[in-house]
Amino acid sequence: MLTLQFIPYGEIESLSSVGRIRKLLNIAKENKIVLLEGRLRKEEEGELIKATMEEINKDFKGIELSVIYPENKKADVFKKMKIGLINVLLGDRQGLTIIGPASVVREIKKDPDKIQLFTEDNNNGNGTKRKRRRKNPS
């Protein structure tokens, strides 16, 4: 059975960088796929990879990570400023971050319009690929 756990941004908003990474990584280590509203800071993404490497052992092989972020290329200056201000005041709630344990998620592919999540089907033991699609949130 595949478990997806949605984390609203509000749940990590008040946490420190270490706290955020710890929370997300702990869920992934429970073999659940994390769907985080918004995204981590860029430096936090790097720290998440570092923390993941520190935890790798015979049971935990690492994570698959993907961040879907709406492009604001067409937005005018006023809209971009508005988005920037909201991000400063409320945190970066735009987009979606997917973190899956490598034992469950084989690969996450993305292009501008959709993401594809390839899972390893361990239950039937034949290692077949299952493909799930999700439209890009914007």
Binding site: R41, K42, E43, E45, G46, I49, L65, S66, V67, I108, K109, K110, D111
Partner: peptide, 17 residues
């Protein structure tokens, strides 16, 4: 390979930051 891989984006984002 796919250039949109999150590792690529995270490395470049960290350098930009």
């Amino acid at each position: 390979k796919d250039p949109y891989s999150q590792v690529n984006i995270t490395i470049i984002g960290n350098l930009q930051a």
